[in-house]
Structures are given as structure tokens and as C-alpha cells.
Design a binder for these strands. Structure first.
Lengths: 190, 190
DNA sequence: AAAATAACTTACTTATTAGTAAGTAACTCT
DNA sequence: AGAGTTACTTACTAATAAGTAAGTTATTTT
């Protein structure tokens, strides 16, 4: 099926994700990826024709991950607060790594991307917002969560707190993110 | 004092600000600025030695603007809610122009910047957060505003809502930003 | 009116970028 | 065992990037 190295493609995705979330989409090149993996840049082009294709692959992976999370949450007897934790936790991990989320990273470079990529990102955004919205609705219905806005607006408020929270943490420190995270959870409880 | 054109420098700042907030810091070049202004790229280098110097000038300008706003708000009999409006309004204008704030834009490229620029951005961030925090405290003391977190945390929540709100609006639409904006204000009133 | 200076342009250089065509080694299938 | 396929490398090209040295022109200063 394949020769030499089975997981070069996966490694490129791993480093690509890291570079996008740490340095930003327009701040790294295929040469950077190649250097990091001790391969030639033509090898990166072999697996992903261009940078956009790499980005699309990463967005697709994110969509798949959230789809799998969605299934997991649907059959789960977890509390809705714990379910929300599944959306919050990745941001805490990002903050620890001094990185930002892929959506936040792409948001700044959004206007430089071709329409095909933009559409895929829209899909991802709508998906995440929809999932959080649904979890919030469920929690309110069960009396496990409290909030006063519509579920959509509440989802927007929470996700913008988290997304900009990790961005801000790189500038003003991790403590600010921690305070945001705690406040987001506290508000939903009382 | 000066020959030919008095405001080329100002024009470069204007276009530079637009490019950073529309395309992202690492997505435009001096050649792009030169093309836009019908000058040569050496002329851009004449006014700002390098891209970092242009960024520093823009951050400095922001700091000055907020300093002037600070003085304006201190001597004002405006309601604290109106004062907060002075921090919110710029984001609504950005959203309309499908742009993002300079701090949000730089946040994604933060790790590619030299220490001197990072320090200046930290300064700007602390300044804005401090001003919003102070306005919130004042509003609570006067009984004009209501919130349950510390003023610092409340400031973080509001500013992250706005910063990520304009980012999100480019992907999912302006309506989402509008709902965030309204919710932010509504929460402080009731 | 001459000298100095500010605001440029011309004409480069050097480095990086994305991308590709052609070759090669290892493995897989028949 | 030979043919095909996969996963690369070698060795380029063409375009863009940042940056600079030297020359030019208009204005200001003396």
C-alpha cells in the first residue's frame, strides 16, 4: 500500500495544525513544515497540493471530530454541564499551549481565502454553534442550566468568550482566560 | 518642512490599518500598500523602515486615541452605559466594514512578532481592559449598571464578546454580532 | 540665489515562496 | 520475476518579499 513512511501525511497535518494555531495561517510556509519534519518541501506538495488543500484537510478533520462528539453526546447520560465541558476543555488545552483555535486563527486571514475554503469554515462554525445551542436548550429544559438569552445568543456569548479568551491569554496572560472560563460556567449554574 | 505630498505618511497608516484589519498582518506586503497609493515600495520604506515600524505606529495611534477617550470620559457627565457605548461602537463600525479589531488581528500573528512590538500591544490591551473595568466599577457604584463578576472579569467577558463577535460575523454573518452586542448591553441593565 | 532638506523614484539585491518535472528506491500485486 | 504503484528526492522555475543605495525634484532655509 505504501512505502517508506506511513504517517508522513499525518505528521504534516499535525505540524500544519500547530503552525496555524501558533503562528497563524499566513505566517508559515511549506518550507517550514518540511524543515520541521526533515523532508523536502516537494514531499509536502505530494501529500497536499497546496496550502489551501492542507487547510481544507484540517477543517475536515475538525468537522469529523465534532460529528463524532455529537454522536457521543447524543447517547450520553452526562449532565448538560459536563457536555458543555466537552466544548470548553479544548480551549483550556489550547490556552495552555499558547495557541488559538483554528476558527479564530482563520478568522483574521478569512478575506485572503478562496470561496471553497470559506464555505467549509462556515460549515464548521455553524456546526459548533448548533451543537452548543442544542446542549444549552437541553440543559434549560432539564432545569440543569440557567440563562436569559436565546440558546443561539447564549451559545454565541460563550463561544466568543472562549475563542477571544485564548487569543487574549497570549497577550495578557493565562489568568485572564481562567477567569473567563470560570465565569462562563458559574453564570450557567446560578 | 515637506515637499510633494504632506499626507502620504497618513495614507500609508490608513491603508496599513485597513490591510491589517481586513486581510491580516502577515497577509499583505509593502508592495500592496504602494500599489494602492500609486507610489513605489521604496516610498513606503522611507516613511516606515519596516513592517514592524508601521505596526508600532498604528498601535501607538490606538494608544493615543484611547488616552484621549480616557480624558474625555473622565470629565464627562455621561451615563456609564453611554461611556461603555464608546467602547462598543468602534466594534459595530468594524463589523459593518467586515473587518476585525487590531488586537484580534495581531493576536493570531502574535507569536511572529518581535518582543518590542509585543510589549506595546500588551500595553494597549491592559489600557483598554483597565478603562472598561473602571467604567464598569463606576457604573456599579452609581447603581447604573449591574453585574455579578469582578469588574476585571466583566470587562474581559464584554471585550471578548466584541472582539470575537466581529471575527465571527465575517464567517457567520453580521446578525450574530448584532445579537451579541444587544445581549452585552441588556445584561448590564437588568 | 545657493545650500540644505524632505519626499520621493529608479534600479537593484537577496531571500523566501509556491510549485513542478523528472528521477529513484521500496514495496505490492500478479 | 516483472510491472505497477507509493512515497518520496533532486533540481529546478517564476513570482513575490523585504530592503537599500543612489539619483531626482520640489520646497524651505539662510
Amino acid at each position: 500500500m505504501c512505502a517508506r513512511n506511513t504517517d508522513t501525511k499525518e505528521e504534516i497535518l499535525r505540524i500544519g495544525k500547530h503552525f496555524i494555531q501558533y503562528y497563524g495561517y499566513n505566517a508559515f510556509s511549506y518550507a517550514d513544515i518540511a524543515r520541521e519534519l526533515n523532508i523536502k518541501n516537494a514531499a509536502v506538495h505530494y501529500h497536499f497540493r497546496g496550502k489551501e488543500d492542507l487547510l481544507i484537510a484540517l477543517v475536515d478533520k475538525n468537522i469529523e471530530n465534532y460529528q463524532s462528539l455529537s454522536k457521543q453526546l447524543n447517547h450520553s447520560k452526562m449532565s448538560t454541564l459536563s457536555k458543555l465541558g466537552k466544548f470548553i476543555e479544548p480551549y483550556s488545552i489550547l490556552c495552555e499551549a499558547e495557541s488559538i483555535c483554528i476558527i479564530g486563527s482563520i478568522a483574521s486571514d478569512y478575506k485572503t481565502l478562496p470561496e471553497s475554503v470559506k464555505a467549509k469554515i462556515s460549515l464548521l462554525v455553524e456546526m459548533v454553534l448548533g451543537m452548543v445551542e442544542q446542549t444549552l436548550s437541553e440543559g434549560k429544559k432539564k432545569g440543569e442550566l440557567q440563562f436569559f438569552e436565546s440558546a443561539r445568543t447564549q451559545a454565541l456569548l460563550i463561544m466568543t468568550n472562549l475563542a477571544a479568551g485564548v487569543q487574549l491569554a497570549r497577550i495578557s496572560g493565562k489568568k485572564d482566560y481562567e477567569n473567563i472560563r470560570k465565569a462562563v460556567i458559574r453564570r450557567l449554574k446560578k
